[in-house]
Computed example of a mutant assay.
Amino acid sequence: MELLFLGTNAGMPIRDRNVTSIAIKLCENGGSFWMVDCGEGTQHQLLKTPLKLNRLNKLFITHLHGDHVFGLPGLLSSRSSLGGTERLDIYGPNGLRELVETSLGITETYLGFPLNIVEIQEGMIVEDEDMTVVAAKLDHRIESYGYRMVERERTGALNAQWLSEMKVPPGPVYRELKSGKDVTLDDGRVIRSAEAVGKPLPGRIITILGDTRPCDNAVKLGEGADVLVHEATFAHELADKAHEYGHSTALQAAQIAHAAGAGRLFITHFSSRYKQEDLAELVAEARSVFTHTDAAIELKPYPINLSLLRSM
Rank of each mutant, 00 (worst) to 15 (best):
M1F: 06
L3K: 10
L3C: 07
L4T: 07
L4Q: 07
L6V: 11
A10S: 09
A10T: 00
G11K: 07
G11L: 13
G11F: 14
P13S: 14
I14V: 14
R15N: 10
N18S: 12
N18W: 05
A23D: 11
I24L: 15
I24Q: 03
M35T: 05
T42I: 10
T49M: 11
T49C: 07
L53E: 09
L53R: 01
L53V: 14
F60S: 00
F60K: 01
D67G: 11
L75G: 00
L76W: 07
S77M: 11
E86K: 13
D89L: 08
I90L: 07
P93R: 09
G95W: 05
E101R: 06
T102P: 01
L104Q: 03
T107R: 14
F113Q: 05
L115C: 03
I117S: 05
I117C: 03
M124A: 08
I125Q: 03
I125S: 04
E129P: 01
A135L: 11
K137D: 14
L138T: 06
H140M: 11
R141Y: 15
E143G: 08
R152I: 08
R154F: 00
R154Q: 15
R154L: 11
T155Y: 01
N159C: 04
E165Q: 12
V168K: 00
P170Y: 02
V173P: 01
V173F: 09
R175H: 03
R175S: 04
K178V: 02
K181H: 14
D182T: 02
D182S: 08
V183L: 03
D186F: 08
D187V: 08
R189Y: 12
V190N: 12
V190T: 15
I191H: 00
S193V: 04
A196V: 07
V197Y: 04
G198H: 05
P202K: 15
G203Y: 08
I205T: 15
I206C: 08
T207H: 15
T207K: 13
I208C: 04
T212G: 07
T212A: 15
P214Q: 11
P214H: 06
C215Y: 10
C215R: 06
A218D: 02
V219W: 05
L221S: 09
E223I: 11
A225H: 07
V227Q: 13
V229L: 03
A232D: 05
A232P: 00
T233S: 13
F234D: 00
F234C: 00
H243T: 14
H247W: 09
S248P: 04
T249C: 15
A254V: 02
I256F: 02
H258G: 00
A260W: 13
G261P: 10
G261M: 10
R264V: 06
L265M: 13
F266T: 04
H269L: 15
F270V: 05
R273G: 01
R273L: 11
Y274V: 06
E277K: 09
D278K: 03
D278E: 10
L279Q: 06
E281T: 10
V289Q: 05
F290K: 00
T291Y: 09
H292W: 13
D294I: 08
A295E: 07
E298Q: 15
Y302I: 15
I304A: 12
L308G: 03
R310T: 02
R310F: 04
S311L: 15
M312W: 14
M312Y: 14
M312F: 15
